[in-house]
């Protein structure tokens, strides 16, 4: 495998402003997830630069990146990625624990967030005792734990039916209205329509980048 060099992204250049709601679309294998991993500081570019809040991310070391992931970025995954043996509350507590937030404050924050996403009565349930939509809402609450500026969602509705998908999406829109920068990956144009900007990738290149200033939810 390592013998062939795959350029998942090549010659991409764009800027995302604070408070934007961006959808990244494109066919399978076009490099969407790769882009999101770079934006989320899970991966670093092999060539080129990535600036987040005026900071050159490729010059940061692992510890700094962990810190950025912890406080500046919230991830929402297609497969939820909740820890199965932990309750909803405990899952939301994880990023707060790594941020060394004091125990009492931690619990308060996590409970408030779960209430905010409509799971105030499901805090002590484990993921297996929750529906897909509920699990995704737990993961949104977890993404919000340290009040990050950016929410990165890779196919957040991919594992949900269209109705619960819509619920999750309107939750993300709400967060955007509260000032969060939302970057959502999807290959469903109906979902991308919720965003105010659509970046279309194809074969690792930006095919189009369009803003919909007048579009409103």
């Amino acid at each position: 495998m390592g013998d062939v060099l795959v350029k998942a992204l090549d010659g991409i250049s764009f800027e995302i402003e604070e408070g934007e709601f961006v959808a990244i679309v494109g066919p399978s294998g076009s490099g969407k997830s790769t882009l999101m991993n770079i934006l989320g500081c899970l991966d670093i570019v092999t060539d080129g630069t990535y600036k987040l809040n005026q900071k050159m991310i490729n010059e940061y070391d692992e510890n700094d990146l962990a810190g950025i992931r912890n406080t500046s970025i919230g991830f929402v995954f297609q497969q939820f990625n909740l820890l199965p043996s932990f309750t909803a509350l405990e899952n939301v507590l994880i990023p707060l624990t790594y941020a060394r937030v004091h125990r009492k404050e931690r619990e308060q924050t996590a409970k408030a967030l779960l209430t905010q996403v409509g799971l105030g009565d499901r805090m002590y349930h484990k993921p297996t005792e929750l529906s897909g939509g509920q699990q995704q809402r737990v993961s949104i609450a977890r993404a919000l734990a340290n009040n990050p500026e950016i929410i990165l969602a890779d196919e957040p509705t991919g594992a949900l039916d269209s109705k619960t998908g819509q619920e999750v999406l309107s939750l993300l829109s709400q967060l955007n209205q509260q000032g969060k920068t939302i970057i959502i990956i999807t290959h469903d144009m109906a979902i991308a329509q919720h965003a105010r900007r659509i970046i279309r990738l194809k074969d690792g290149l930006v095919e189009s980048d369009a803003r919909y200033e007048d579009f409103d939810v």
Binding site: G40, L42, E62, N63, A66, G67, R69, N70, T71, F75, N81, L82, L83, I94, P95, Y98, A99, R142, N146
Partner: peptide
């Protein structure tokens, strides 16, 4: 992987 994505240091 999840823990690292959520900000766990090495």
């Amino acid at each position: 992987g999840i823990r690292k994505a959520l900000g766990a240091k090495r």
